[in-house]
Design a binder for these strands. Sequence first.
DNA 1: GCTCCAACATGAGAGATCCTCATATTAAAG
DNA 2: CTTTAATATGAGGATCTCTCATGTTGGAGC
Lengths: 308, 308
Amino acid sequence: MLELRHLRTLQAIDDAGSLVEASERLHVTQSALSHQLKDLEHRLGLELIVRRTRPVRFTTAGSRLLALARQILPLVKKTETELKRLSAGDSGRLHIAIECHSCFQWLMPALDRFREDWPEVELDLSAAFGFEPLTALTRGDLDMVVTSDPVDDPAVCYLPLFRYELVLAVARDSEWAARRFIEPGALAEQTLITYPVERERLDVFTAFLDPAGVAPGSVRTAELTPMMVQLVAAGRGVAALPNWALTEYLDLGLVKSVRLGEEGVWRTLYAAVRQGDQTVPFIQDFMETAEALCFKNLSGIRRVNLSA
Amino acid sequence: MLELRHLRTLQAIDDAGSLVEASERLHVTQSALSHQLKDLEHRLGLELIVRRTRPVRFTTAGSRLLALARQILPLVKKTETELKRLSAGDSGRLHIAIECHSCFQWLMPALDRFREDWPEVELDLSAAFGFEPLTALTRGDLDMVVTSDPVDDPAVCYLPLFRYELVLAVARDSEWAARRFIEPGALAEQTLITYPVERERLDVFTAFLDPAGVAPGSVRTAELTPMMVQLVAAGRGVAALPNWALTEYLDLGLVKSVRLGEEGVWRTLYAAVRQGDQTVPFIQDFMETAEALCFKNLSGIRRVNLSA
DNA sequence: GCTCCAACATGAGAGATCCTCATATTAAAG
DNA sequence: CTTTAATATGAGGATCTCTCATGTTGGAGC
């Protein structure tokens, strides 16, 4: 009758504050949760949550179930992890390469957390510059590549992490700072600061400037996000960066961010693994850990749409 | 992925010692458990129990899951009971009548246990002699009748408790004591000791003697099981009683039991409730409690076949 | 008060799941 | 080496649980 599914749902609703948000976290539709909850309430003959408030409020019965969920779900999760370790052996290798410098920000905490659960898995992290990471992945030199450019290849499986917006960092006193968005043409007179990688890997070109046939006034490179922010703040140019990578600098008031085009440029960040590896227990666990930490720590990111 | 269903299955297998017995306790087929277990083992990539031993042995992984089951299932159960109490109100009435004297034996502990969970339910227990209990049930004077004679009535719902064998208690030194079974004809010369109720309510007549057209030499009555056993032990006659009601006297060596006919006379004990009442939370809970206690304390009883 | 928007509800139908039935296989006991 | 009790397996059907499409509702803003 009562099943873990129901407890997971209630916990997610509590964490999220609404059915819509909870359904995204659980990777099901809002309709599914609505049906499931209604069915449970019907069978219990009790109302569990009051929907017309925001965030939703739990009734006495709902709270009781929620308490049960909070009590037993961690135990279940712990046992599941233990069993996964037992099944595939607790050892293995996870060599990760990132194409996106900023990813260090969330990857480091994720790796720390992961190491606790899988102490025997050999971890390694490298930046994928100066070589073709997907080749290294299929060849077996790497086990995971974090990228926002999925390439159609039957040997590679792309596991989505989150969607983010590519925004333009501009100086605080720049005349663009107050604009809601800017058009590609505006960059023709500007200095664009980018990471030192090939143009084809830079979304600001592939998704914004190139389609409009615009080239920036000049381009200069910087290795690390803080360096780019310093240059932008000093009025030496503008830089296209993921919105979540800019949050801390925006909060500090160093720079401002402006949308690229009316709709904005949205990208999805993926973890690419070898086809088949998506079922390896510790890979699945890593993805769960990473996703949870990202949505906890990064602001402005969105969940990947199911149908995508 | 992992669900409470799996934990309940593992717990039942541990309690029962085999898939067959566990499947009966869970009211599903053996096939269902086999499939379920195999599927779980497959998805975990781990063997959970070793089947070729009796009782089955749990592997490390199986034990881990079993420990989880023993830890969280009681918590779940407790919460479910609480919610049931919340839903239908925690009060109500359960007036029970028994047609079978011996039933006091298991009914008393069941009522004690039940009272702990449902303190607000008004309990009453009476013997259904000298009046028609089913009429009292449909009229609302009673809420449950414990009987082994289901009568086809759309207003009444029969909830099976267990199957038992009606056996003949004979004196220890009687010449029948060593027989595997006796034929109806043998009773023609004997004194039969029965409860003081109408012939039609006595299974020994309806299911054994009457079909063979035999009447016992003489009939005398006794009110209580211990009295009947005393008379039988003293060589004053024989008595047909449920096998489970005789267990303690057999163990004491007071009397012996003999099967009635080659196949034995098997009966099912039911709890009759008003149609619709079978969904009342505290009635369901009472049935679960009673069933669990019966199979724990009574020996020689069987589970009711699903297809019956 | 009216419109709009976001959140939740609902009905129908597809797909997955889980169970049962019938039967095969296996292991242990006689 | 049979016999029997337990477990395994394959097929098929009932049920469940999603998704899709659309309806309804409550509250913020004009």
